[in-house]
Design a protein around this nucleic acid. Sequence first.
DNA 1: CCACGTGTATTGTTGTATTGATACACATGG
DNA 2: CCATGTGTATCAATACAACAATACACGTGG
Lengths: 129, 129
Amino acid sequence: MDASLLTITPGAAEPIYRQIVEQLRRMIAGGQLPPGELLPSVREVAGFHAINPMTVSRAYSLLEGEGLLERLRGTGMAVAQRARRARSEAERMSLLEPRLHDLARAARELELPAGRVLRRLGELLEDGE
Amino acid sequence: MDASLLTITPGAAEPIYRQIVEQLRRMIAGGQLPPGELLPSVREVAGFHAINPMTVSRAYSLLEGEGLLERLRGTGMAVAQRARRARSEAERMSLLEPRLHDLARAARELELPAGRVLRRLGELLEDGE
DNA sequence: CCACGTGTATTGTTGTATTGATACACATGG
DNA sequence: CCATGTGTATCAATACAACAATACACGTGG
């Protein structure tokens, strides 16, 4: 995997390390990062995005704690073999649930018709592919 | 409006004052809080939710700065009259856009089929009403 | 008139989160 | 064998959020 595949926004409200964590978590769960895949080194990511190596390391460590990454000493970090599990559609869906709830609540408070929200989301989901 | 209508989660990642700000902003844009509506006093909200009065005051001040609330001296805060504008469906929709983009991106990284996401969101939107 | 209820300014303290700078231990691989 | 590249432990700096305790300015309403 290449460092350029990560999207990092230093100025955002969401902390950098968490941007990395959640992005990688989803890409692993989704299968874009298969088990065994080697991740870019902390210094590589840090250099490319002009951030601190420790910030990247922190993200990697958290994912290692979750069992999603493996430390290959002297080589780097790789997607763990046992990370292949937890890949049923239902399980991936559960990672999206909190965001869905927040969205539904916001839409309700805005008194927006369900149809309109669904239609717009449909468009955005198409655009990506 | 009653203090119990606000949903506040002290332990959440999102700071309390911003939870209040965004919630009120949406309820005003959505029309649940019509112009002239009197808000609960800072001490009332603070007491009910066991938080600091200054935290509530901070949220109110920010909304006053946006022109959404009006200070009625000696009485409290009320939804501003001129807040009625900016209420077209398109405008309310725009408040939801960032969240929609995030969701679409997450769904893509999770490799979830659009249909499934849309169906689930549909359910959640129904439940609310 | 004046007690009471508004919001707010002020000051200080506490806890936490985030990021950064530096130095270190370790395995690889020519 | 040792230069090079891994990740990371440690400490510090900074910023932010929230709380606490006052005191204040102001209008309402009995």
